[in-house]
């Protein structure tokens, strides 16, 4: 007989591979969670995802709860809500969660949980604890927004295995450290940004994106990284035609959300003021602006002249190993079909 469970009275089949949180999410049942991240697995630390289970005295964290046949789960009982509210209140109390100026406003899991629980202002407040760390080239760390969920530490150590981030100290003083508690910019961090992508709140964010756009203004476009040959899938976050940030595409082949420093932060060059914007023809040793027709005609005529005088093999071309396939295809087609030579190569071996 098929095994099943009941969540809020609704029946779901189970196959022993999914946690209660996963089953609930797949079926549109909202359970807030702050430390759970799919690819890192359950952490059971934030205690926000608790649910009530018939026959079990304590509330259970749904992220780590593997259902057993016949289990009856309630996700929104008064007891559950009171516990969740307390947890979210505690987190809001112990930091500077000022959404107005936060880069993650509108894309923050703590904010979402607070909103869903109807918490407008925290019930209690204790003083701030940490300074912002802006020492690194691309990543800003704001300890006052950190909820110590540990995702960044796990991501650094288990996903990209760069082994820079750790939890330092303990108890109320627990905070994320780089190496032996160095500023990020002075540490061995290589700015891959995995931690930023894992952060559920505004404790880690991209320096380049500050003030560039709000989550609700963002258009997302998937593309492929222009650097090495791994072919990482990127999610460009755009406001207008401006890249605000780049994330790795979760679940995508081959990189499942991961990127490196170049893939995540090496995008500004397309906006550079030094970009070539017009055809240039060298006249008397100096480049002069020209129209497309002028430049194209000049090249075509010169090529034709050379072909006529010396044959097509007196022309050679090097294609580009960074540009799109379609460009290389057309360049070799130009050389083979229009010019009539196989003198086409690219830096295939470097």
């Amino acid at each position: 007989m098929d095994k099943k469970i009941f969540i809020d009275g609704r029946e779901f089949a189970i196959d022993g591979t999914k946690t209660v949180l996963e089953i609930a999410r797949e079926n549109g049942i909202y359970i807030p969670s702050l430390c759970y991240l799919k690819k890192l697995g359950p952490a059971s630390m934030c205690r926000v995802c608790v649910v009530e289970v018939d026959g079990i005295r304590n509330l259970q964290t749904s992220c780590s709860l593997m259902p057993t046949d016949g289990m009856k789960i309630t996700t929104g009982s008064p007891r559950v809500i009171e516990a969740r509210k307390m947890v979210v209140n505690l987190l809001l109390a112990n930091g500077n969660h000022n959404c107005l100026i936060c880069e993650r406003n509108g894309d923050c899991e703590l904010q979402e949980a607070a909103y869903n629980l109807g918490i407008d202002i925290p019930a209690f407040v204790v003083p701030e604890r940490e300074e912002k760390d802006e020492s690194a080239a691309f990543i800003i760390r704001d300890g006052n927004k950190c909820i110590q969920c540990g995702r960044c530490v796990e991501a650094c150590n288990r996903m990209v295995v760069n082994e820079v981030l750790e939890m330092g100290n303990r108890g109320g003083h627990t905070h994320v450290i780089c190496d032996n508690d160095l500023p990020m910019g002075a540490s061995s961090c290589v700015q891959c940004g995995e931690c930023v992508q894992a952060c559920p709140v505004g404790a880690l964010y991209e320096k380049k994106g500050v003030g560039k756009g709000r989550p609700w203004e963002i258009r997302k476009v998937r593309t492929t990284c222009p650097y090495c040959g791994v072919g990482c899938q990127q999610e460009l976050h755009l406001k207008g035609d401006q890249i605000v940030r780049i994330k790795g595409v979760e679940g995508a082949q081959p990189n499942d959300g991961h990127l490196c420093v170049k893939g995540r932060y090496g995008y500004d060059f397309i906006y550079s003021k030094e970009r070539l914007t017009t055809p240039l023809i060298k006249k008397n040793g100096k480049f002069e602006e020209a129209s497309w027709d002028e430049a194209l005609d000049l090249v075509a005529n010169k090529f034709k002249q050379i072909i006529k005088e010396s044959g097509p093999d007196a022309i050679a071309g090097v294609s580009c190993a960074r540009s799109i396939n379609e460009d290389s295809f057309y360049m070799q087609k130009l050389f083979r079909a229009a010019i009539g030579t196989n003198n086409i190569d690219h830096c295939a071996r470097t």
Partner: peptide
């Protein structure tokens, strides 16, 4: 592992 994003493609 190809050094550039589209050496394989080229």
């Amino acid at each position: 592992l190809r050094g550039q994003n589209n050496v394989q493609g080229a």
